[in-house]
Design a protein around this nucleic acid. Structure first.
Lengths: 202, 202
DNA sequence: TATTATACCTAACGCTTGTTAGTTTATCAA
DNA sequence: TTGATAAACTAACAAGCGTTAGGTATAATA
């Protein structure tokens, strides 16, 4: 791991914990194991470091999301598309996606940093909205749209379906607390189950 | 308005905009129209001011929530309970509650401040969870429970129903943007309509 | 081997931070 | 009218801030 990457990784963690204004260059440097002045070998200012972090994390995040949605075989269909066809499959997929976002160190830090800065930094606010609201809703809307066209789901507004499917996961993630993990997972399963019963054509 | 209240009100606004660490005592004082030292006539430290703000806002918030749920006549039934019985009533209530939280200056500032500090200040984090997640879910769970007992809703898990009713409003509030207000309102109405069609016994 | 580049360092700069001490001004009861 | 209380003020403190200039040691290049 290069020093530059170590700085970025440490900055992400500290900004997530204490916020941009709550972390000084000296604290960051100390955590990395260097002196504050050395950070300026890699970044021209604290703000530039933050912006660089946003861009870097966005890239990494997009790659992860791509991988989570593995294309199966030669068709354009995705894991989620297959899973959506059975209640248990959909449950399992929702739970594992949820657990990834709730437990993966990088994903958690990134989300916390964005949330903490979203009202103070325009780019952070936009990025949060894109990554955790617009993109998931867009993706799921398309998915449900396809499944409706295939006659596998009832003919309702796919945007609203996406909202109703995703929003409970979003809320549960926002209130995630590891001491209640099992309870939360049960809620997700029940939610998916009711959602499924409601919309899946049978 | 007393100076103390003016300090609290201004602090809420500035903390919501820029965060606790992004606002100095001198900036706060300037906005109030006094010198920084004078704030210490009312609060012993910046941190105590913040804690006082949390407590004060919690009180005020609880009073507001009580009023929003006006008891009708002599019965124990509430406005929401009546509204829940017709789709249009429920739509209107959901929209007006949403607009209150999205537009009322105090509610907006309070929410933003709590969100911005929720990972840095334990009390802020707990308060956010209580006020914007646990309490609404608890209240709506009880409501749906009653309506199920009265045979007016289908017999499903009222906790999950509350989650499915409330989470979309929570997500839309989190991504609220006044330029898209009409679109959001339409989404809320459609969501409530689908929710209603799904669970109301007819 | 001499030179250059890299990666770190120390020391300091000007400024801002939260906070305190001591002082002035206005308000009101005795 | 005097004296006390409250609410503001000025001035300063020690500490911390982001940042810069310039130095040193190590490793690669000529």
């Amino acid at each position: 791991m290069t020093t530059k990457d170590l700085i970025l990784q440490t900055a992400l963690r500290l900004f997530a914990e204490r916020g941009y204004n709550g972390v000084s260059m000296r604290e960051l440097a100390k955590e990395v194991g260097i002196k504050a002045a050395s950070i300026y070998n890699y970044f021209s200012s604290k703000e530039e470091l933050f912006n660089h972090l946003l861009a870097e994390m966005q890239n990494r995040y997009e790659q992860i999301v791509k991988k989570l949605n593995i294309p199966m075989g030669k068709s354009k269909e995705t894991a989620l598309q297959y899973a959506a066809l059975s209640e248990e499959g959909l449950q399992e997929l929702a739970v594992s996606l949820f657990l990834y976002f709730a437990k993966d160190e990088f994903a958690v830090s990134f989300r916390k940093m964005l949330i903490g800065e979203k009202y103070r930094n325009l780019a952070a606010g936009d990025l949060f909205k894109d990554m955790f609201i617009k993109e998931p809703l867009k993706y799921q809307t398309e998915l449900f749209q396809k499944l409706i066209e295939q006659g596998k789901l009832l003919d309702a507004d796919p945007k609203i379906m996406a909202l109703q499917f995703y929003a409970p996961l979003f809320l549960l993630l926002e209130s995630y607390d590891e001491t209640q993990e099992e309870e939360i997972i049960q809620s997700i399963k029940k939610h998916v189950s009711q959602f499924s019963r409601m919309y899946v054509r049978r």
